[in-house]
Simulated scan of single mutants.
Amino acid sequence: MRSRFFRILLTFSNPIRPPILWATTPRLRNTTPLKSMTIPFFSALFGTSTPSSKNTMTSYPDQRTPEEWRAVLSPEQFRILREKGTERPSTGLYDKHAPSAGTYGCAGCGAALYEARHKFASGCGWPAYFDSVPGAVVRHEDRSLGMARTEIVCANCGGHLGHVFKGEGYDTPTDERHCVNSVSLTFREEGEGAAGAGDGKEAGAEGKGESKV
């Protein structure tokens, strides 16, 4: 009996403090919403691209200012040639144009770009050429739509023509397709004089007339 009494007394004289349970709250991460990503869509193809740092006015022999270009180009020509726009597929004058001879020139400055023999039927909805006049076209990397493409511009004035694609399997000597806007072009029959620099509005007028963008 005495031993039991001492055990009880010992228990109450040395109480065991119950463990403290700390309520831990997990640290919240930064939950700031992510900015929505712009997904390139088909309609974006008909807008404008951000100009390449290499494709500047001072890079080409014809160094007219935007104001000078506006004075000689129609609004649609300016949008495509100077602001890198794109006409809608299957609307351009030269999409199904198939002459036996002649030269396609820049609608801005009149420089010769493609021979009639370079053109082929690609079915893509834009004029297609497998080659160009030597030295007439300059290529630039274009990442404007979240993808790597190769832009082609007039080597004389820097006017935007379109893009070039390679390895698509067309039965052509180069396996390349220069996909060009009709609005960027003018056509001269064999033996016709070249359009002079500064005659862009007149040179590209027929291209504008059939391009319903």
Rank of each mutant, 00 (worst) to 15 (best):
G159E: 01
T65N: 04
I39C: 03
Y114T: 11
K35Y: 07
G193I: 10
L73V: 07
G123E: 10
K119S: 05
T32V: 10
E115H: 11
R7V: 10
P26G: 00
E68I: 07
T65F: 02
E67W: 05
H140E: 15
K166R: 15
P61E: 02
A107K: 01
E190M: 09
G123I: 04
R4E: 15
A101C: 07
M1C: 00
A197P: 05
G200W: 03
A101E: 14
E190Y: 01
E192H: 11
F41C: 12
P75E: 09
R177G: 12
P26K: 06
S90T: 06
V183P: 04
V137D: 07
G193M: 14
V180P: 05
G162A: 14
L9V: 12
G191H: 13
H163G: 12
F187N: 01
Y94H: 08
F6T: 03
C179G: 15
S100Q: 12
G191I: 14
I152M: 04
D199G: 06
A107L: 05
E206D: 14
N156F: 00
G193P: 13
H178T: 11
Y170G: 00
P51Y: 01
A98I: 00
S13K: 14
L93M: 11
L10W: 02
G102K: 03
G92K: 00
G169Q: 14
N14P: 00
S100N: 12
K119T: 04
